[in-house]
């Protein structure tokens, strides 16, 4: 009886792990951010950035004092699934869930594939793609996994 119970528990455990890997989608969120030294954004559609992300950006060696949220897109991807997220007129990203909390993110600028990065992205971590923008400002695309640990 006890051996049977152990075998059943082991099978259930394996099923849960498999189901979690195979069927539970990875909730990904991409945020387009504009960095500037101005106190106010000239675009009224820009929103103040989430404090936790702003704190992480401030901890990096960037020259900008203020960060504004321009656009936010999210997607749920099961393992081996991909999605294309349009962040602005010229900027898109393609996200692939490679399983085991690993993502493959491709930056597409003006329709051209600019670069691809593959890395684990557990909840709470950020993958940031960034570059220079006009008038000494900067753009960022922050990709993160939405989970109970993320904030």
């Amino acid at each position: 009886m006890s051996i049977f119970a152990i075998v059943v528990c082991a099978l259930l455990f394996r099923c849960v792990i498999y189901a979690e890997d195979r069927f539970l989608p990875m909730q990904l969120e991409a945020i387009l951010i504009w960095g500037t030294n101005d106190e106010q954004s000239p675009d009224p559609n820009h929103k103040p950035l989430e404090p936790s992300i702003e704190a992480k950006l401030r901890s990096q060696p960037f020259k900008w004092k203020k960060y504004f949220e321009v656009n936010r897109q999210s997607t749920n991807l099961v393992a081996k699934a991909a999605a294309k997220l349009k962040m602005s007129q010229e900027c898109e990203i393609e996200v692939l869930n490679r399983g085991d909390s690993t993502v493959e993110v491709t930056l597409i600028g003006k329709g051209q594939r600019v670069g691809t990065v593959v890395q684990p992205l557990p909840p709470g971590e950020l993958l940031i793609l960034g570059g220079n923008a006009p008038n000494m400002t900067g753009w960022f695309v922050v990709i993160r996994q939405r989970g109970k640990d993320s904030q």
């Binding site: 992480k56 901890s59 990096q60 930056l107 600019v114 670069g115 990065v117 890395q119 709470g124 971590e125 950020l126 993958l127 940031i128 793609l129 960034g130 570059g131 220079n132 923008a133 006009p134 008038n135 400002t137």
Partner: peptide, 17 residues
């Protein structure tokens, strides 16, 4: 950045204009 759990990929192209 291991302490912050941040990976940065920086594209140092000159901005438009």
């Amino acid at each position: 950045d291991w302490t912050q759990g941040v990976t940065l990929m920086w594209f140092p192209y000159p901005a438009n204009g």
